[in-house]
Design a protein around this nucleic acid. Structure first.
Lengths: 410, 410
DNA sequence: AACTCTTTTTAATATTTTAAAATAATTTAA
DNA sequence: TTAAATTATTTTAAAATATTAAAAAGAGTT
């Protein structure tokens, strides 16, 4: 029993075999998206007769894809059996890689988190050794988990740098000119591998298991060290042509002379981002402002966390002022996106989401001020619900979506 | 023979009737999207046997939905019959309303323009009389056309003001609090009516019949009196929550003190738009600049056209300078959209598209300068192919899509 | 004119649906 | 409380429908 034959859509079958295969897929699809169902419900929705559906469900039952949850009560009459996807029939692995640490998580097919490991220390370098170390850490995680490796059907790895999801190439880290990185890692793990942009994965995580209810048009802002957005349009993750969409942080917005990490002048990130926050903090101290927070000169990332924590935990005036100013600016420029997208929901995620209302309220008021009323009234503003687990959970959801796509979109 | 029963998806049929209905729909769908087909092709793609498909096609043939185009040659063997949608089996009406004129067009189901009337003078006012006049003009157009009214299956009307496509309400023109405007017009025309944003319709027109080849992620810029964008994401027209998406022109971009037509300060339109072009022209004349163009003080819209025509037809230095400056600015701010969308294609439409390279080249160079290289390399920049017919043709395509949606998405 | 390739038709086979009967549980009424 | 009526699922077998595979037909090629 493996998902592979269920997903296999090769055409080396006779017509009636293909149709039977399609029916089985439709049942799985229905159970995945619509939750548990009775035979009668499946029959009505899949436009197949009760005897046919019964036969197919029994087949899936003995193969282990589906489990019988027992009889349920209804408004009189014979009680039907309720069927569900067997949650242990497939698992999905999600990995998030940072510069100094990585996180790994494992979910079953019902999106239930089986195991998660956040912030394992790992030095991301552009070497063969680093790549092997990376793969070994993942393999160890799998061995330590309670799940048999053969039950894992795929892996999604999030990178913050430039990657091409479609072709499986990574440009900033683990770069390899000839072969797609996915192929190399796949060889080490012996599992299908998909590369994903970290912000996009976070957005999808919030969509599947986070703060999103029924909203179908969503902008997720990853407001952290840098700034990027992930978009869900009409209920589908948006990629753009090559999967580079969402680079909001490198929009040329300001006429300042600050050089961005990307090399251009005046990017949004030069005034609105974790790294610019540090510069603003240092500038203020130089100007004689006082603060309870002392920065660790060795680690920029720790500095960024210290300022955010200074605002939310210590209520340090300077930190609060700085994040408020930034957030209001962020709101002003997010209003451009609001006017363009008319979204149902705007989610603030990333490290700045920890600030809660310190970030959300200035953003909200700036949105009110700068966006069109009609568009602003249509939208809800919320904070990420998954926090720092968003990336890993999102990765698990992404690889599930990718692998089950032929099944889900038919 | 009317499309209605073919589109009818009501569930008051037996299972086998429903399935048969679905097969017929699938054949029509295939012929609409994939072009003409033989029975063998249909059989392979629809996963039904040749005898079954033959029976269904023969049924559609006698009902008049499908026509036999005769035998075609292939690589030896018996020559198959090629089948096509009957182009006269359904017609779609598109209407574009401006403040002083309107345009109407009629297309058949194969997107062939049967009749078009551009720039019929009509004064758009918020009165009952104006609305009745409007409907009468449409009814006259239909009578004057060679097509029987009963063969027209729906109407799409484009407005430039705020409208809610989903609910059928118009806010700026023909406003009615209680009943959706679509309902009122529908009563007068005795046809199903859909309201659409003009820029979105233009974008869809270019997608279906204009400059778009196979691109699936497209930004269409309606660069005219105002500025708005229409988006196609993953091959589908994007609306947002209520259909207000695309309001790029009212993004707060500048820190100037110019009041926009929308009432806010610093909108993109205050420096980049047809109406701002007039102000810039007058300002320049006041500063002593020379120009061959003399503006008609009575009509702002004519002024706007005069300056654009001055640049493209007279090669007037001032006009060329102004549109070049504006276009470069436009390119700079479009680069934000590029970074966010990573589109395959950026289409410049609206009145400024008449400028050709006077507009396109400055936009292109600014895009190159301000957008991310990766994203810029992914994109093609093109000029609208449909010109001022984009709105009407787009409207026809939109109403066809709306009505055939259940058929197309199954 | 025979051969090859492909579509179309035909008839046998297989599958699915339909409808009726059986089962099972709840609701109502005596 | 108990039994009948009601509601709804499940099973069964007959009927309807679609598929398969073989044969026929059509059209070009050797």
């Amino acid at each position: 029993m493996s998902l592979k034959d269920l997903l296999d859509n090769s055409k080396d079958k006779s017509l009636s075999e293909q149709k039977w295969h399609l029916l089985r897929q439709s049942i799985i699809k229905r159970l995945l998206s619509g939750g548990n169902s009775t035979i009668a419900e499946l029959s009505a929705e899949l436009q197949s007769s009760v005897p046919t559906v019964t036969k197919a469900v029994n087949e899936l039952l003995t193969e282990g894809y589906v489990v019988d949850l027992g009889k349920i009560t209804n408004s009189g009459g014979r009680r039907p059996s309720l069927f569900s996807i067997n949650p242990t029939c497939a698992y999905f692995l999600g990995v998030e890689v940072g510069l100094t640490s990585m996180s790994i998580g494992l979910q079953n097919i019902k999106n239930e988190l089986v195991s998660i490991e956040l912030g394992t220390s790992f030095a991301l370098e552009n070497t063969q050794e680093s790549l092997l170390k990376f793969c070994n850490l993942i393999n160890s995680f799998i061995e330590d988990s309670s799940v048999e490796k053969r039950m894992i059907v795929g892996v999604c790895i999030n990178f913050s740098g430039r990657i091409n999801s479609m072709e499986g190439f990574s440009y900033n880290y683990f770069f390899s000119e000839n072969r797609p990185l996915t192929e190399i890692i796949s060889e080490q793990l012996n599992l299908p591998v998909h590369l994903e942009n970290d912000t996009r994965a976070m957005a999808f995580g919030e969509y599947c298991e986070g703060v999103v209810d029924d909203e179908q048009n969503i902008i997720f802002v990853n407001y952290s060290w840098g700034v990027a957005i992930g978009m869900i349009t009409d209920g589908k993750l948006y990629y753009g042509k090559s999967g580079y969409s969402g680079e909001f942080g490198h929009s040329t917005i300001f006429n300042n002379e600050i050089m961005c990490q990307c090399g251009k002048l005046g990017c949004l990130e030069t005034e609105i981002s974790g790294w610019s926050l540090i510069n603003q903090f240092k500038e203020a101290i130089k100007d004689g402002k006082q603060s309870k927070v002392v920065l660790d000169e060795n680690s920029p990332v720790l500095q960024h966390h210290a300022i955010i924590s200074g605002a939310v935990n210590l209520e340090d005036t300077l930190c609060v002022d700085l994040v408020t100013q930034q957030s209001e600016k962020m709101g002003r420029y997010l209003s451009i996106l609001l006017n363009i997208f008319n979204p149902d929901l705007l989610v603030i995620g990333g490290d700045f989401a920890q600030l809660g209302d310190y970030a959300l309220l200035p953003i909200q008021s700036a949105l009110k001020k700068y966006s069109l009323g009609l568009v602003n009234r249509d939208m809800k503003l919320k904070k990420s619900a998954l926090g720092r687990r968003a990336g890993v959970i999102g990765a698990c959801c992404v690889i599930k979506e990718k692998l089950l796509f032929p099944l889900i979109n038919n």
